[in-house]
Design a protein around this nucleic acid. Structure first.
Length: 587
RNA sequence: GGCUUCGUAGUUCAACGGAUAGAAUAGAUGUUUCCUAAACAUUAGAUCCAGGUUCGAUUCCUGGCGAGGCUACCA
């Protein structure tokens, strides 16, 4: 916003001329909608220099700058607030520039690379609502960084090995009867999930039996024959036992086929996938190097630690006494691997906030190791999704399954659409696609409109409501515009002389939109985009209701309103694309 | 216990330290001979408590109350 720079400069000059002030931070904010004006300067900070009442100080500054800038039509003073109002001509020109140039997003990430790791599923069970928030958030952040000019690597680290996978494998071996996705009619990930649950049920039963025979609960957990077999299987896997590895590959492949379907329906994708089975041994050499350089130290039992008490944390283990890695060891190794491969400027982990401590430690360790890339680490820590009944708990079967969730919300979209009956003449293929666009859009928007960092509540009843601050509301606004543009012929027109208030509001929102994107990138927060798009859609509906567009008699006003509508539509589509949500042409 | 995040209308969410705390939904009422009423308009309704910093605090600090997370040689 060119004008803002000029305004700040003039204000600094005014403060200098009037009160002899130098090097003062001047910043304007959007004028509160209850007052007249476009931008507002708060003058309270200058009072001790002006030694005048707030009203008089604001008046003086207002007089000074409005004489210097002819974009300023008027100003008014309310207490210590100086509200600046730009001329209609200024706003009309702004809209003209925007129309001619398209949406210009400041490229704050030019020549920079960012690796964004998200999704990162375990291959022992299907995805649930929590994963959906992760995926939708991760994908949107990728889109946003791409829009501001970063080269983005969408990265997934699949947790495909370990004790939890072995649990499913043991259960499958025991009770699977060679069941396959084909024979069972189950999606691969759901099939494996079934055996994971089966394992746990039998495991719990076994523990109870042991406990009733007078064995301590902790001991029972260790002694359970199922657990012994599972640990044995992990050992075999690590030794490369052919039978174990073959089964492991088979079962993982089923899961991947299942995930692929879910990812596709959610509209997320990846440029680079790491598998933990390839990376879990990484980091050990780095631990040895760190030991030599005294970043780490060894205890008597042979385990290796880092002392983070100077940073206010505690001691953290990086290698067990038996020489095997812990989780953070792998993460150190994988960070190094990423840097070797991509030489990225930033790398982001989209991971829930229960791992805040883990990532704090990881970054500290990388810094202590002197890794040049350590400062580029960012943990996009998002809050858990709670249900009205409380937390999701797999044990208690309150987990909301991702595939079922999508089925339900798409079914709702279908039902709603049919009830409204506005889709005459659309083919069944078009309709199926429309229901997906509306249903999946509603789900994604529901998850993205909340600040990513915050914990949120998922209420199934509310999520299928398509009124108000929802994707279908915004999509509906878009289709109104699309329909309008279909009916409008292309005409030349001159800019009108005056604007009505809603038109001006629309231009303001459209002009400010690129700043919203850079802010969303800086804050790793897609909800800033969703809020801006919602505000725009709401304002457009008001405009649409209050003013006729195609029926407008004045040639220039009519042309201008059509163009304005077009820009609103483009902005909605652009914003929704950043959220990973599609827009329909009809609904 | 230690560390950490969060307490805003009945409910779900907004608000770079700034004006009279915004929306949505649920509640009450109204608007279709007119570009899609999945819309628009009117109405009622909230900052957990007590101190402090500041010209100004939902926002920053301290203490209390309440909720979540972390605190494994698990991942």
């Amino acid at each position: 916003m060119e004008i803002l720079t000029k305004l700040v400069k003039q204000t600094e000059e005014a403060l200098n001329q009037l009160y002899g002030l130098d090097e003062i931070d001047v910043s304007f904010e959007q004028t509160n909608s209850k007052f007249n004006g476009d931008l507002t300067l708060v003058v309270f900070p200058f009072l001790k220099f002006s030694k005048k009442r707030p009203e008089d100080t604001a008046e003086e500054i207002g007089n000074y700058i409005s004489n210097q800038l002819d974009e300023i039509k008027a100003f008014n003073v309310v207490k210590g607030f100086l509200n600046i109002e730009f001329s209609d001509k200024y706003w009309l020109n702004a809209s003209k520039n925007r129309f001619e140039e398209g949406i210009q997003v400041p490229k704050i990430g030019d020549n920079k690379k960012i690796v964004i790791e998200y999704s990162s599923p375990n291959t022992n069970k299907p995805l649930h609502l929590g994963h959906v928030r992760n995926n939708v958030l991760g994908y949107s952040i990728c889109q946003i960084f791409d829009a501001v000019g970063y080269e983005v690597v969408k990265n997934n680290l699949v947790n495909d090995r370990g004790i939890h996978i072995c649990k499913s494998m043991i259960a499958y071996q025991k009770w699977g009867n060679n069941e396959t996705p084909e024979s069972s009619g189950l999606k691969g990930d759901h099939l494996i999930g079934k055996y994971y649950v089966k394992f746990d049920q039998n495991y719990q039963k076994e523990i109870q039996e042991l406990v009733s025979n007078g064995i301590d609960k902790e001991e029972a957990k260790e002694k359970s024959s199922l657990m012994v077999e599972t640990r044995d299987m992990l050992q075999k896997w690590e030794n490369g036992d052919l039978g174990t590895v073959t089964l492991w590959k088979q079962m993982n492949n089923w899961v991947y086929e299942g995930f692929e379907e879910t990812y596709k329906r959610l509209g997320v994708s990846f440029d680079k996938i790491y598998y933990e089975s390839d990376t879990y041994l990484l980091g050990k050499e780095i631990v040895q190097e760190g030991l030599k350089s005294n970043v780490f130290f060894k205890k008597e039992d042979g385990s290796i630690w880092i002392d983070l008490t100077p940073e206010g944390l505690d001691e953290k283990i990086v290698q067990r006494s038996d020489g095997t890695s812990v989780y953070i060891t792998q993460d150190i190794g994988t960070a190094d691997l990423k840097y070797d491969e991509f030489k990225m400027d930033k790398f982001v982990y989209v991971v829930g906030n229960e791992q805040d401590y883990h990532f704090k430690v990881l970054q500290l360790i990388l810094k202590r190791l002197g890794k040049s890339y350590a400062d580029g680490l960012y943990h996009l820590s998002y809050g858990m999704v709670d249900l009205p009944e409380g937390k999701m708990k797999s044990r208690e079967g309150t987990v909301v399954d991702a595939d079922e969730l999508m089925d339900e919300i798409v079914a709702t979209a279908k039902k709603q659409t049919e009830e409204l009956g506005k889709t005459d003449g659309m083919s069944s293929k078009e309709l199926t696609e429309l229901y997906e666009v509306l249903g999946i859009g509603a789900l994604k928007y529901y998850l993205l409109k909340v600040d990513a960092k915050k914990r949120m509540m998922y209420d199934p009843k509310e999520s299928i409501d398509f009124q108000g601050n929802t994707a279908p509301f915004i999509q509906y606004t878009y289709t109104r515009i699309a329909s309008l543009l279909r009916a409008a012929e292309k005409v030349d027109f001159k800019l009108p002389k005056v604007l009505n208030p809603v038109e001006k509001d629309l231009i303001k929102l459209i002009s400010n939109y690129p700043n919203v994107i850079t802010s969303a990138a800086n804050n790793y927060n897609p909800s800033e985009v969703s809020n801006a798009v919602y505000e725009l859609a709401k304002t457009f509906n008001k405009f649409y209701h209050e003013h006729t567009i195609l029926g407008e008699q004045d040639h220039n006003t009519r042309g201008f309103r059509i163009t304005l509508s077009n820009m609103v539509g483009e902005t909605i589509k652009h914003g929704f694309n950043l959220l990973g949500i599609k827009v329909p042409d009809r609904m």
